[in-house]
Design a protein around this nucleic acid. Structure first.
Length: 543
RNA sequence: GCGCCCGUAGCUCAGCGGAUUAGAGUAUUGGCCUCCGAAGCCAAGGGUCGUGGGUUCGAAUCCCGCCGGGCGCGCCA
């Protein structure tokens, strides 16, 4: 019964439309969830949409449609405002979601609509030249959550980390370590140009020397430094609860000839020309505001060529959908990479790949911006944040704003174990339900057969309504690559639960009503746990 | 100068493939602990949705101008 009340209403509405307005029987029906409880569980503005085309008064049209609607599980629809048709579910149809949640458990809210199609999410992709900074942290939190959302929709997701292990930045790193090992300090005349000045450089040099490394062997210094920093980044990511399936090395693109192949494809397709001793690509043919250099006059390629080659491999590896998570400071590469992918002429779609661009993170502590850390020098690291406020708070906070808004990370707020701190508020709701069950001591599995029709008060029905929204919310969040939707949902669900908990004496009453209420609590707990796991935050039983 | 993004309650932010009275948290104020976790709950006040036009029966939402902020505009990555 009412396995999905939304589709059954949609169907009923479609049927009514066929009778009342056969010429528009295939119109797009959008069922909204009204913000106001007084407007029912679902609302359609179809009459308003069609009124113009049919040259009818929208309210009259709405009335006719409403009268033609036939179906069960909901009350006869009401007309409101300029011509909205509002639907109200019958109590038993609403509460049936609880049963579904308890039966499906961890699977509640998940869907198989992705049909196992492979999707790749590339994120972090930090070069091994220093510890991960807070921007990488935002990418890690966002990217992992986007990946989890896509998995929840039935996609086969590959989490990928791409890094440059061979370019000019790595040279600078090696020179910096070498110099530091020889006692040169940043600012000395012998210090390399644009060298890395953080304290970690000294750590690397010290470890290298203590292991008997030769500071004059710059290749060995480079290998050691890269290995050291990769290990450190991995440790940070692990502490953050993020794992990658593939680490892709830029150097392998050169080794495999993929970079040369891209340049050749550009030329074969007539998209290049020589000027000032360099080779240029006509990216302006694909919407870029100027053409870009492919091969510099010194014979080496610009970074953008391996970037294109890398994305070609994504396509060739079978990823029809790719989401790249990057900072907005790299947004100019979006047009360029897409242009390059068109220029190789392999049938890659124009908008490939998708991007989630996030604004920068500002860390505030004690009312002042924190700009430096001892270890990294000029920036705050992911490790700093985890040490200060804990993994759960970092992940929840970094995911709780839409990606393109600037984020002020308030360390003091994230540390607070109080109502002001959203992550604790949500986790606390979960712990509270666990506590109720611990005191009750009964068998949660048996709650699935509770008499859910006994749940009739306003708070209960509102809570049930919220729970029912969850699958749809996840589908939209996955489509939009917008994990902040999940964070907001959890905040709202927690708030409603706290309100309910405070108002009803769940264990005090006895009998079937108590069982039904416990079933509701169990469904809330399950949904909270499901949502938190998607954004990489734990759901504690005690706090 | 050009391109992209942002400007919603004192503060931090949702909403922006138009639609019923613009939402949350926090802060402020006033209530609620003999009673399943007060790390909580209830209530009140607080917004001409940066600004000026336009499209529409209807605009925070779409279009144009302006103001303010961020980022990017290399034969750097």
């Amino acid at each position: 019964m009412a396995a999905d009340s939304k589709t059954s209403i949609e169907k009923a509405l479609r049927g009514a439309l066929a009778k009342v307005a056969p010429s528009h029987a295939d119109a797009v029906i959008v069922l909204e969830r009204p913000k106001q409880a007084g407007h029912g569980d679902f609302s359609s503005n179809i009459a308003l949409q069609l009124a113009k085309a049919l040259k009818r008064n929208p309210r009259e049209l709405a009335t006719e449609i409403a009268q033609a609607v036939a179906g069960d599980g909901f009350e006869p629809p009401e007309i409101a405002g300029p011509g909205f048709i509002n639907f109200r579910l019958r109590a038993e149809a609403r509460a049936s979601v609880i049963q579904r949640i308890l039966e499906q458990g961890h699977a509640y809210g998940r869907s198989s609509s992705g049909k196992g199609e492979p999707v790749q999410v590339e994120f972090v992709s930090a070069n091994p030249t220093g510890p991960l900074h807070v921007g990488h942290g935002r990418q890690a939190a966002l990217g992992d959550a986007v990946a989890a959302l896509l998995e929840a929709q039935g996609h086969k997701v590959t989490r990928e980390f791409y890094y440059n292990d061979a370019g000019a930045q790595i040279d600078k790193l090696a020179w910096s370590v070498q110099a530091r090992g020889k006692g040169v300090r940043p600012g000395d005349t012998a210090w390399p140009q644009e060298g890395y000045a953080g304290e970690y450089i000294e750590d690397i040099a010290r470890e290298y020397v203590s292991q008997g490394g030769d500071l004059n062997d710059i290749e060995a210094v480079r290998r050691h430094a890269v290995r050291y920093l990769r290990a450190e980044q991995d440790a940070d990511l692990q502490a953050f609860g993020v794992r990658f399936d593939v680490y892709y090395l830029e150097s392998s693109l050169y080794a495999d000839g993929k970079v040369d192949a891209v340049v050749k494809a550009f030329a074969v397709n007539g998209k290049t020309y020589e000027k000032d001793g360099a080779l240029w690509l006509r990216t302006t043919d694909y919407g870029d505001d100027k053409d870009r250099v492919v091969r510099k006059s010194d014979g080496t390629y610009t970074y953008f060529v391996p970037d294109v080659a890398y994305h070609v491999t994504k396509w060739q590896r079978g990823f029809k959908r790719v989401v790249n998570v990057q900072g907005t400071d790299h947004h100019s590469t979006v047009t360029r990479v897409r242009a390059g992918l068109q220029a190789v002429n392999l049938g890659i779609p124009r908008g490939y790949p998708d991007y989630v661009l996030h604004s920068l993170v500002k860390v505030v502590r004690g009312g002042e911006e924190v700009k430096i850390s001892k270890r990294a020098g000029s920036y705050v690291t992911v490790r700093d944040l985890i040490d200060w406020v804990g993994r759960d708070a970092v992940r929840f906070f970094l995911v709780s704003r839409k990606a393109d808004s600037e984020f002020v990370f308030d360390v003091d707020l994230a540390r607070q174990k109080s109502d002001e701190n959203p992550v604790y508020y949500v986790q606390y709701a979960h712990a509270r339900v666990c506590s109720v069950f611990a005191q009750w001591g009964g068998d949660v599995a048996r709650l699935a057969s509770a008499r859910l029709d006994l749940l009739t008060n306003e708070r209960e029905l509102a809570l049930v309504r919220r729970l029912e929204e969850y699958p749809e919310l996840l589908a939209n969040a996955a489509k939009d690559a917008a994990p902040h939707d999940v964070a907001f949902f959890l905040r709202d669900l927690a708030a409603q639960f706290h309100s309910y908990y405070n108002a009803e004496r769940i264990l005090v009453e006895d009998g079937e009503l108590r069982t039904a209420r416990l079933a509701l609590c169990a469904a809330v707990r399950q949904t909270l746990a499901n949502g938190l796991s998607l954004i990489g935050v734990s759901a504690p039983e005690k706090m």
